[in-house]
Design a binder for these strands. Structure first.
Lengths: 357, 357
DNA sequence: TTGTATGCGTTATCAT
DNA sequence: ATGATAACGCATACAA
């Protein structure tokens, strides 16, 4: 606990051991052969001085590598942990990054006061963006100029940046078509947030025009291919509670009683939202799917539905994360990064049926 | 894209601007007053050269700070993301760390091949350990010798390391006592993992003696205060599926039919496990709480129970995470860290009742 | 196999 | 308000 004494450096160790600093350095990095005798000497000296290995800060300045990959998440970190799709992607990502033994630095997207964006101040080797808003773009520009590899999951980061994408539009259209085939003409949608404001409100052309979240727009566009004029509401986040709030505005009036003009089907942009919609519908006395068809998106095997299985579109979330990690690994190895495209799969459940009326 | 050209450094910028490097540096750090005119010159030069601000690696070597706090999680990262208690703690932690604008570096506990432990090679300012096994101890020693602040959540890291603790034993005893008061004499427990092996097996004195996970041991000890001889099974992780597996071994025989000597109550060490126990019990034709009392631990408002509310012990998980973050902040500010102790609160639900027999 | 020399890009101290 | 200088601690090219 001699806190005043300067910590021992590799130079100290070398001196103590009676060797040169480069020899001592090599003992710890193990990149060059060292005679057993000298190694012992160095290790002994290190033990004496309480030297615990190279300082990561100095090493990273020297080598230009920190072994850290930043993952920038849109919205608050707490949402990230609460969203099953995000956790699944993190799962795949951490798996792929473990292969190059890189750590994951969690960074948030938001402004965080008036300070410089954290990405620009963190010693990272690469950056993975997950569903980030336009606000991140400028910080991203900085990162790119520094020559760091960048991969984007579900978003367009501009020219030459490898993306991991999903066929959101096509899959959404397929789902809407399924609902249409069932005979529904009166359909509404509950979407994810349109922008960083995350406002809960009916969808209007003006709001769509000003939207910045591609996922939301793409899924909405697919839905609109089949139902161009359908009503919709935006949720503030992909949460069960948000689905409930949205559903109430679609199904009931201000007094809480069912509206006569309520839709016979609701297409939610996420499974969590769909679960919320179902829960709210049941609270209002509607049976699913008899009185109301509800479909989701993601395929996360949501809990909380009792024995009902949600009709949804399954996306390969873990694979997306892994793909992003693999591209980072490639780029770090000097190879060019490539965009990777994934497709969803329709998954029939028990929450959709022909309309009663 | 002039990839061959060396990236501009602050020295280049200074030269271009016709000022000294220290002046240029100060323009970017903003720590000292600079004449507006010179600032403009420097910024202009930076723009010309495509200089995007100080290199974080060099800055962190110089200042000794990287703005990164490592969070070491026991077990696989994927489990961490799947465990509601962990995500709640991360939530509180990220909140507290945001206050000092530190990023969170996710590190796993496990051996990770034969390489050096990642903590020792990452440029971090502090370390938070969450439920780590003894294996981490040695790596931790290294970190401590480097003088980095360390805080441990639910675990003993030794001498002088601030801990964030929970009254696991007392709370478990309280819960066991509640079950006892209901009249149950035939009670079994489903525990969390005893060690890093995470074996699913009946609890034996030998296994307990060799156990390394304090949380499991403490909760078990509290339970044993009331039911010293009760049977128990360990689960591999805090997951619904694990609870189901454990429950089947307690309630049914190899052929899948109910055992005559089955318990009338099962005390699970986590809510997720309890949900699994309930699900398995229902599959076996038992009604909860009429035929079987099931209680949990954590208070996470688990989904998947239908309208049934779980009788459990609620722990302040978010507060625990926040407390850890606050201690890190304190220690980084030079003040001594303190251990913080939290207590749980019994929460009555609808999954416990007197035994039928 | 070991040693010598140099620079990675900053920022802090001190003087001006 | 600005500038000169010295570390920060290490890893590598090259020589011996």
């Amino acid at each position: 606990m001699s806190s005043t004494a300067r910590r021992a450096t590799i130079a100290d160790v070398a001196r103590e051991a009676g060797v040169s600093t480069s020899t001592a350095s090599v003992v710890f990095s193990g990149k060059v052969n060292v005679a057993d005798a000298t190694r012992e000497k160095v290790l002994a000296a290190a033990a004496v001085l309480g030297y615990t290995g190279p300082d990561p800060r100095a090493a990273s300045l020297r080598t230009g590598r920190s072994g850290i990959v930043a993952v920038v998440l849109g919205g608050e970190l707490r949402h990230a942990f609460l969203d099953p799709v995000t956790t699944a992607m993190m799962d795949g990502l951490s798996d792929a990054l473990a292969a190059i033994s890189a750590g994951i630095l969690l960074l948030r997207d938001d402004p965080q006061g008036d300070e410089a964006p954290p990405i620009t101040e963190a010693p990272v080797d690469a950056v993975v963006l997950i569903g980030c808003s336009g606000r991140t773009r400028s910080a991203l520009e900085t990162v790119r100029q520094r020559g760091l590899p960048v991969v984007v999951i579900e978003g367009d980061a501009g020219e030459g940046i490898p993306q991991v994408t999903l066929d959101n539009r096509e899959a959404s259209a397929e789902m809407a078509d399924y609902v249409c085939q069932l005979g529904h003409t009166d359909v509404a949608t509950v979407t994810l947030a349109l922008d960083a404001e995350r406002e809960r409100a009916p969808i209007t052309p003006a709001r769509v025009a000003a939207a910045t979240v591609d996922v939301t727009l793409d899924r909405l566009a697919g839905f609109r291919e089949i139902y161009p004029d359908a009503a919709g509401v935006t949720a503030a986040a992909s949460l069960v509670d948000e689905g409930m709030i949205a559903a109430r505005t679609l199904l009931a009036d201000d007094t809480g009683s069912l509206r006569a003009d309520r839709p016979t089907a609701i297409v939610a942009q996420s499974d969590l939202l769909a679960v919320g919609v179902i829960r709210a519908a049941e609270e209002l006395g509607l049976r699913v799917p008899d009185d109301l068809t509800v479909v989701g998106f993601d395929g996360i095997n949501a809990d909380g539905l009792g024995s009902l299985r949600l009709t949804t579109i399954a996306q390969p979330a873990v694979a997306k994360g892994r793909a992003a990690g693999e591209q980072v690994a490639r780029m770090l190895a000097g190879e060019p990064g490539e965009s990777v495209h994934f497709t969803c799969a329709f998954r029939e459940g028990e929450t959709a049926a022909p309309p009663a009326r």
